[in-house]
Structure formats: C-alpha cells, structure tokens
Write a protein that binds this DNA or RNA. Structure first.
Length: 543
RNA sequence: GCGCCCGUAGCUCAAUUGGAUAGAGCAACUGCCUUCUAAGCAGUAGGUUACAGGUUCGAGCCCUGUCGGGCGUACCA
C-alpha cells in the first residue's frame, strides 16, 4: 500500500510540476483515526521550493491524483495541508487474508534479509550471580536479537567475559579466606573482597570436596577457578530460566593469546596515534575531540580494558558480521567513542558497530528505592526475582520502558497478579481468545468458505487495521532497538480486541458472521502469539 | 568545572523520531455480566510537556541559556 501511494503521488506531482525535483514521499499513520489510515505532508514540504501555500498545493494534488477505488476509499485534504488516505474495506479484507497465509511467520520482514548481525550482551564477569541490574541488559539484548531475526537478519548472541584481571584475583582470595575460616583458621577477610553468601557456599563445597588439602596453599588458583566455574554455571542457569541462549562465549584472554592486542597496538603505532609517557602507552584521543589522551597500557605493562575492547571489536568485525551491536549500561557510555575512533583509524566502517545504551534500574521495595552493589552483597539477584514473579513478568518489566529512561522496578507491582500487573493484560487477551475458541468449537461446526466482508462493525475494522500494523512495528522496534514499542503495539491490539469482544458476540449470531468473527479472532490470537514470542514471553492457553 | 542521558497528569511511563486535539496504566469517582474468561468494556476528573528565548507552515521532540536528577570524567572494569 505504501509503495502504491508513493507511486501515484509521484506521478501526480510529475504531471503538475514537470520542472520540480520530486522529493522522497513521506507517509505516516495519523494519530487520530478520523484523519485516515495514512497521511502525507508533501504539500507542506513543497511549499517552500514551489513558493506556494501548502493548502493550494495539496488541493491541486488531490484533484490530480488518480487512484483505484477498490483500494482507496477516499483522499482528503485536511489541516494545514495534509493529504489523508483512507483504505477501502475491500483492500483490508485482502490484506487480512495474507495474515493467515503467513501464519506463524506473519510479521517476519525482509528488511535485514541476508544480513549477519551480532549482539553482544550480559558480558558480566563471573564474580557473582546476575542481579536485577544485569537483568535489563540481558533481556534487552536478547529481545533486540529476536527483533533483528524477525526483521530478516541472522543473529549471533555473544557473551564476552574476562576471567583474568584484578577482580577475579579478589574473587579467588575471597573464596580462599572463607575456605580457611570454615576450616577454623583465623584469617582476615580481604579488604574489598566479595562479601556475598555465595562465596561461603563455594568455599563450603570445596571443603566438602577437598577437605583441608589447600589449607597450606591459600594462593592456589583452584580457588579462583572453582569460583569461576560455579558462578558461570549459575549464570547460565539464570539465563536459561529467562529464555536466553547464548551462541558463543568469548574470553578476553584469547585476544592476548592470539596476538590481537599486540597487533592493534602496532597498527595504531603505525598511524602515529600512540606514544609513551611516564612509562605508560597513551592513545591520542585528543585527536578525536576528547579532552584528554587515554592510557592503553599501564606502566605496569598491563593493558587497561580499552585496548582489549578495541581488539575485541576488530575481532568481531573480522568475523564478518555486517553489524555488531553492544548492549551497555549508561556507565559505559564514555568508553565506546574511543573504540569507534580506533576502529575507523584501523580501517573499519564505524557504522558496523552499533550501541544500545540503557539507563539504570532502580529497584523499589516497600515503596523505597534500593541501592545495589555486587561486592557488598547488597543486591537482588535475578533468580530471587524470578522466584517471586516468574520469568514472564521479569522480562516484561525490563522491556516495557524505553531503554533511554531510568527504569523503576516496583517489586510489589510485579508480584501483583491482578490488573495492576501490565503483563497479564496481554496474556489475558490471548487466553481469553483461546477460551472462546474452545467454546465455539464445542458447539458449532462451520461449513463453507469464510466471508471476511461480513466484518464491517467499527470495532472489527479497527482490529483488522491494528493487525495489519504488526510488521511495521517489528521493524520500528528492531531498527530503533526499542522493544517497548512492540509492547505498546500489543497493548493497543489487546485493547482493540477487548473492545471488539465487548461489542460483538459470536454465538447466536448469523452463522456466516460468526464464522468470520472466529476467523478474525484467530488472526488476533496469531499476532498476539507471535508478538509475545518475540518478547520471549509465554502465551498461555488458559488463565 | 567539563561531557553524555533524563525532566510529560498525584505516581509509573507513552507519544510511530518534526505533524493535526499530548495519550495509557495505577490511584479517585460513575455506569455495564442470569448466556462464549468482568484479569474486561464505557465514562468523569486530572497538563503552561521543569523554566526562558530561538529555528519554521508546524516543537514534548531540533538550537542556545537557566534550574533540578542520574552517569561518566582513573595508569578500576
């Protein structure tokens, strides 16, 4: 339909103003239903180049426009110069038919067909269980990946981690200290160590397994290695519970072993973008508009995290992905411009790296905000949260707001199983349809072809139109990396359905009409299911 | 100090990326089930989109400044 409208508008313009360079025709869905199904503002944008009033242009255009009346019901001039198009019911019924043809794959687009995407997310180092803070990252990353898939791309999900470095040493020392304490040795807990209960659990397990074997060897790497193994196991179980499956895990350490770190450094040196000072190696980030240069290698010889970050991104791009998406919390916002600068210097197209930055999550418990810190063991883990509210609610809460705004996670509201909880509105709509279907199937058997033309009630038409919007919203949510748009859409669809069902009954109606309505419900059910699938949320048969 | 993000109904948030009359949910009030899920529907009330300018046919959205909040601004990740 979009293409059709663009074509006839362009043709009309060409006839009216042969001299004019015809701009890209912009079509949008008016906010208000009375303004039609699609509208264009070409007349307004042409006002300046043509030096004519927008309404005058619009009027001429409307008069000149030739269209097929079986497709378009009306074309109107409105407001300051909008041209509003209203689809004919005939076109709507035809389009609705296509929904059934596509079925489970209705909504799948071709925009990103043939593209290879990679989404890197979670990427928490194995120092402790995933917390609610990681939750937003995990769920956003996974859902954005699903959206890319529905937009036609092939997508790889990657988890990047570092099991070397200072953090992990502290982790090992923390376990070692607890291990010794359990065995009765009076050792002091390391300053800044991980205080969480899970450290004790790991130590206890080691006592069980090895007895006091390592009591005389508190520096043994086995403490760190065991902790890493146990914690990773724990993390992957948590992810699985949340419906998240990683394709690859990438260890930062590989970048050292395969020489990419040195290689990147050498290539930056060749471009004269690094220099030595005070025993450290610096990256001339001032050349890219930064206030200060950035240290890449400390005077101890150890790289800062920025260098492996650059090498890692180069590595990802070398693996042939068309686009690599990073999912970052707001605290990482400062680091990625350096990575981008370095990559373009190294000859990569910086548009191949895309970053989704989300604002922090505030947990609200008993009406009060709750500050978290992994090291201080002052946190709510994702597992605890899911024990309380389940994974559907957890995913939904992380997705329902724009990534760009701070998210307030109200545990009380999430626990609420009734109308206060917004997930249920969607799931209920689906379950309600299933129930109606079951009932109808018990009592009636429809014969003959479905006649969609019988769906002429205002709220039926509204439902049909909403159903047809689904693919557009997937693209919109995918390209903006904002899954909440899909949720907003599904909410509207659910509202349209409930309204329809309030206005229109099925049983007791004329059989052909009932049949058409059942068909319509099937379409709603299908879209609802596909939508919830993208969100990674279950569509329950009954509630 | 400087940089990035945010500021919309009492509360939590939308607003299809510059479009027409700024919308939902919760909280408050009023109606609607003897029959297919009322976890629903319909309605009332609630706004100078933090503030002041600017850009243009048109601004919650873009630009400048001010105020308020978050995050950065490490030879931490």
């Amino acid at each position: 339909m979009n293409e059709y409208l663009k074509r006839i508008i362009t043709e009309a313009l060409r006839r009216l103003y042969p001299e004019l360079e015809i701009p890209e025709i912009h079509l949008e869905k008016p906010r208000i239903a009375e303004h039609g199904d699609l509208a264009t503002n070409v007349a307004m944008t042409l006002a300046k180049p043509l030096r004519m009033p927008p309404r005058g242009i619009a009027e001429a255009l409307v008069n000149e426009l030739k269209y097929d009346e079986s497709q378009l019901e009306s074309v109107d001039l409105a407001g300051p110069g909008f041209i509003n198009f209203k689809f004919s019911p005939n076109w709507l019924y035809g389009a609705l038919g296509e929904v059934f043809e596509k079925g489970d794959s209705y909504g799948k687009g071709t925009l990103l067909e043939g593209k290879r995407y990679q989404v890197e997310f979670v990427s928490a180092n194995p120092t402790g269980p995933l917390t609610v803070g990681h939750g937003r990252n995990a769920v956003l990353g996974d859902t954005v990946a699903r959206l890319f898939e529905w937009a036609g791309a092939s997508v790889a999900r990657e988890y990047y981690f570092n099991n070397a470095g200072r953090q992990m040493r502290v982790l090992g020392n923390s376990v070692s200290a607890r291990y010794q304490q359990i065995l009765g040795k009076d050792v002091e807990f390391p300053d800044g160590g991980y205080e969480g209960e899970y450290i004790r659990d790991i130590a206890a397990k080691m006592v069980e397994e090895y007895g006091d074997t390592y009591l005389s060897d508190p520096e043994n790497v086995i403490f760190k290695e065991t902790a890493e193994k146990v914690i990773f196991e724990d993390i992957s179980v948590t992810l699985k519970r949340m419906n998240i499956k990683m394709d690859t895990y990438f260890n930062e350490n590989d970048l050292y072993e395969n020489g990419s770190i040195d290689d990147v450094l050498k290539r930056l040196e060749e471009k004269d973008l690094v220099y030595k000072e005070d025993g450290a190696v610096w990256f001339r980030t001032t050349k890219f508009g930064k206030e200060k240069d950035t240290v890449l290698v400390k005077s101890t010889g150890e790289p800062t995290y920025r260098l492996p970050d650059i090498a890692y991104h180069a590595n990802k791009l070398d693996r042939g992905y068309d686009v690599c998406v990073d999912v970052f919390g707001a605290d990482h916002i400062a680091t990625y411009p350096d990575v981008i600068s370095a990559l373009s210097v190294l000859g990569y197209d910086k548009n191949r790296v895309d970053v989704l930055i989300y604002q922090f999550v505030t947990i609200v418990q008993d009406g009060k905000p709750f500050k978290m810190s992994t090291r201080k063991a002052n946190f709510v883990t994702l597992d605890e949260l899911m024990d309380e509210v389940g994974s559907d609610v957890t995913r939904f809460f992380f997705l329902m707001r724009s990534p760009g705004t701070h998210l307030e996670f109200d545990i009380a509201q999430a626990k609420e199983s009734g109308e206060k909880n917004p997930v249920f509105y969607l799931q209920y709509a689906f379950a309600r349809i299933q129930s109606i279907m079951r009932k109808v199937q018990e009592t009636t058997e429809f014969k003959g072809e479905v006649d969609l033309k019988l769906l002429s009630h205002e709220s039926e038409i509204k439902v049909i139109k909403s159903l047809l919007d689904f693919p557009d919203w997937i693209i919109s949510a995918a390209m903006s990396k904002e899954p909440h748009r899909l949720i907003n859409y599904l909410n509207e669809l659910a509202t349209d359905f409930h309204k329809f069902y309030h206005d229109c009954r099925i049983m007791g109606e004329d059989e052909k009409l009932a049949q058409a309505r059942v068909q319509l419900l099937q379409a709603v059910s299908l879209v609802m299911k596909n939508g919830l699938t993208i969100l990674g949320i279950e569509a329950p048969e009954r509630m």
